[in-house]
Design a protein around this nucleic acid. Structure first.
Length: 250
DNA sequence: GGGACGAAATGGCCGTACAC
DNA sequence: GTGTACGGCCATTTCGTCCC
């Protein structure tokens, strides 16, 4: 399962925590990191039970769930830069007068108005979410779109892929029963589906040397250099500037 | 069909006014 | 002090029309 699928499918309560509880483990919704239940984890001379350790992981790796979410692509958050900045200031606990000074506006009522608009946006978002859920229940045959990966470098109509379309494309481009490509697609939408599938060959917690990345990609397609370039370009992999280390983008 | 252009619509920001 | 409604201004986006 791709990390972003877990994220998008998680209930609001789990999203707020940043992790979800499975039968034998806790899974970080932000990066896919897994913490096994029943194990005591040592960290900085302290022992942590699994759930506490997951909380520690989120704090150390992501700052907080708020920090992580507020830093996402504006296409995903639906917030303007201005609204993003305001929410950060609200989260820091600043009052309207302090925010007025930071934002360099003339009146605190402007900040109050922003609060009001954001609350209105929250109500509208809840309304839309409810309507969409009801719509799904009403029309079980409606196409369900695969959510874009969270590190996508751009999000547009090319990301509108249904599960059925995805399965069709994977069948078309991969040799049946393997992760080897028959050919690399030319169309952007198909590239995204194929690259997304290839990204599952990399472990989220591991760092890879370039030759290791090449080995993985060679097993998929002979033109591993092109694959590597696209994996970076489309935001699936990240790397050090000198190319000495690669990792799955979180 | 597609590019250029102007008009209209929309969205975001700011401030004022008013009720509680 | 706070929440809300509203209007003005500006920038951006969308739409319709014309022309090639």
């Amino acid at each position: 399962m791709v990390i972003s699928d877990r994220f998008w499918e998680a209930p609001l309560e789990d999203l707020k925590k940043g992790y979800l509880e499975e039968k034998e483990q806790f899974v970080c919704l932000l990066c896919g990191n897994q913490v096994e239940k029943g194990i005591i984890y040592p960290q900085d001379n302290t022992l942590y039970e699994a759930e506490k350790f997951m909380n520690l992981h989120i704090q150390r790796e992501h700052g907080s769930v708020f920090d992580y979410l507020i830093g996402l692509n504006k296409k995903l958050t639906g917030l303007t830069d201005h609204q993003n900045r305001l929410l950060r200031l609200f989260y820091e606990g600043k009052n309207d007068n302090e925010i007025k000074q930071v934002m360099e506006v003339g009146s605190t009522s402007t900040i109050r108005n922003h609060r009001f608009v954001l609350k209105e946006k929250e109500r509208q978002a809840k309304m839309l979410l409810t309507l969409m859920e009801l719509l799904k229940e009403k029309d079980e045959h409606a196409p369900s779109l695969i959510p874009p990966h969270q590190t996508a470098t751009m999000v547009d109509d090319r990301y509108n892929v249904t599960k059925e379309e995805q399965e069709k494309m994977l069948k078309k481009y991969f040799i049946e029963g393997s992760k080897s490509l028959k050919t690399f697609p030319a169309k952007e939408k198909q590239k995204l589906v194929v690259l997304r599938e290839i990204s599952t060959l990399f472990h989220p917690k591991e760092t890879y040397a370039e030759k290791d990345v090449n080995e993985v990609l060679k097993s998929v397609y002979y033109d591993f250099v092109t694959l590597r370039r696209y994996m970076i370009e489309y935001g699936f992999l990240d790397r050090k500037p000198d190319g000495s280390a690669y990792w799955l983008k979180k």
